[in-house]
Simulated assay, not measured.
Amino acid sequence: MKKRAEPCRQLSMLSQRVFNVPLMITEHKAEVIIAALHQRLGVGSFERLDATTLGATDMVALAGDARRDYDNWKPYHADDGIAVIPVSGTLVHKFGWLDPTSGMTGYDGIARKFRAALADSEIRAIWFDIDSPGGEVAGCFALCEEIARATQSEGGTKPIWAFINEQATSAAYAVASVCDRVYGPRTMITGSISSYIMFTDFSKALDKNGMDVSVIRGAPRKGRMTGAEPLDNKARAKLQSMVDETHDIFCSLVAMGRNLSFDQVDGLEGDLFSGSDALELGLVDGVMSEAEAWDLLQYELGRVAA
């Protein structure tokens, strides 16, 4: 088992990396590091770049301020009282990270940021910055329903706006559709309001390679969609039923969020639409640049405050 390094050796290595070597870090952050570790590093005082000197008491206070800054950390970027929540890449159920990474965003991370923004008294509005082709069904509708319940039309006190920057299709549009307002540029791509299942039948590939797979079932319908054998009629009907159910939930959600009828949304046939068409069909509230939409939100906030 690897032994842990001696504490004194760790501090010695830290000292060598902090003192008497070139650093590329803001002076405030460097001061916080020294302040937090001053006792262990044996630093009684140090002279700042402005020629003032920090003593032991000052360093304790500075370290305390740093801890308070961490306690006040927000899981979203806030600009003039508006929480900006990115929705980018492939959307998945439980990603476990707050911030989008590796081309994926978790519905769980979006929900945590959204709840925090609603509870933050300093936040006056919420802005979803969306650039996503969509993703998993699991977790999507639950998030959308949570957002919808907090909108102004449902008695919410904070405007919730979505900006399509520049794609919000399928599950990503579901998120946008339930917001109070939806905007995007002329080149936006949106829609694709439906669902599908890609079933992979590799039974012929197995046969071509001389492999014979036998499925031993404990019940007649168990394992009928493994891909090791062609779909039978009941299995195909089951998959179609699952897709149809998801489609109907999706259309109902968009109809509710955009004040359209189910038939209007269903009649879009899962197609994609650009800016002008999306506006004409009622999928968005306006076609404009991000800066123009942001200014409009600022105006609305100022008008309400006045």
Score class of each variant (00 low, 15 high):
residue 254 V to I: 11
residue 290 E to D: 11
residue 257 G to D: 08
residue 33 I to P: 00
residue 128 F to Y: 13
residue 149 R to M: 14
residue 6 E to R: 11
residue 201 D to K: 02
residue 6 E to N: 14
residue 254 V to C: 07
residue 279 L to P: 02
residue 228 A to V: 07
residue 216 I to M: 00
residue 156 G to K: 08
residue 231 L to F: 11
residue 211 M to C: 03
residue 11 L to S: 12
residue 121 S to M: 03
residue 248 D to C: 06
residue 16 Q to G: 15
residue 9 R to D: 10
residue 273 F to I: 12
residue 70 Y to C: 09
residue 166 E to Q: 11
residue 118 L to W: 14
residue 95 F to N: 06
residue 58 D to K: 12
residue 160 I to G: 07
residue 185 P to C: 02
residue 282 G to Y: 09
residue 20 N to S: 12
residue 88 S to N: 08
residue 70 Y to P: 07
residue 171 A to N: 14
residue 132 S to G: 07
residue 92 V to G: 09
residue 18 V to S: 05
residue 142 A to M: 04
residue 31 E to D: 08
residue 173 Y to H: 11
residue 3 K to R: 09
residue 131 D to G: 08
residue 147 I to C: 03
residue 14 L to T: 12
residue 185 P to A: 00
residue 245 E to F: 14
residue 27 E to K: 09
residue 161 W to A: 09
residue 225 M to Y: 00
residue 100 P to C: 06
residue 269 E to V: 12
residue 268 L to P: 06
residue 9 R to L: 14
residue 63 A to T: 04
residue 117 A to R: 09
residue 170 S to C: 12
residue 222 K to Q: 04
residue 142 A to I: 01
residue 83 A to V: 03
residue 273 F to G: 06
residue 169 T to I: 14
residue 113 K to F: 04
residue 148 A to R: 15
residue 257 G to N: 06
residue 154 E to I: 05
residue 161 W to Y: 11
residue 218 G to C: 04
residue 8 C to K: 13
residue 278 A to K: 09
residue 228 A to C: 05
residue 92 V to Y: 14
residue 124 R to W: 13
residue 28 H to L: 00
residue 77 H to S: 13
residue 181 R to G: 01
residue 279 L to F: 11
residue 50 D to F: 13
residue 7 P to G: 09
residue 99 D to W: 10
residue 20 N to V: 02
residue 143 L to I: 15
residue 30 A to K: 09
residue 196 Y to M: 04
residue 250 F to Y: 15
residue 102 S to L: 12
residue 88 S to C: 07
residue 49 L to E: 06
residue 145 E to I: 06
residue 45 S to G: 12
residue 235 A to K: 00
residue 54 L to M: 15
residue 294 W to D: 11
residue 233 N to E: 11
residue 156 G to I: 04
residue 297 L to I: 00
residue 32 V to Q: 07
residue 205 A to D: 10
residue 269 E to P: 01
residue 266 D to F: 15
residue 246 T to N: 03
residue 149 R to E: 14
residue 50 D to H: 10
residue 251 C to K: 09
residue 171 A to D: 07
residue 162 A to H: 01
residue 233 N to P: 02
residue 186 R to P: 00
residue 63 A to G: 07
residue 98 L to D: 07
residue 227 G to S: 02
residue 11 L to N: 13
residue 258 R to A: 05
residue 211 M to A: 02
residue 149 R to W: 14
residue 165 N to C: 07
residue 112 R to V: 03
residue 197 I to G: 05
residue 163 F to L: 02
residue 55 G to D: 15
residue 253 L to Y: 05
residue 102 S to A: 10
residue 283 L to W: 14
residue 151 T to H: 06
residue 125 A to Q: 04
residue 189 I to G: 00
residue 184 G to I: 02
residue 154 E to T: 04
residue 283 L to F: 15
residue 223 G to F: 00
residue 75 P to S: 02
residue 162 A to E: 04
residue 16 Q to D: 15
residue 297 L to M: 06
residue 282 G to I: 08
residue 136 E to L: 12
residue 296 L to D: 08
residue 63 A to I: 06
residue 109 G to P: 04
residue 167 Q to H: 10
residue 244 D to P: 01
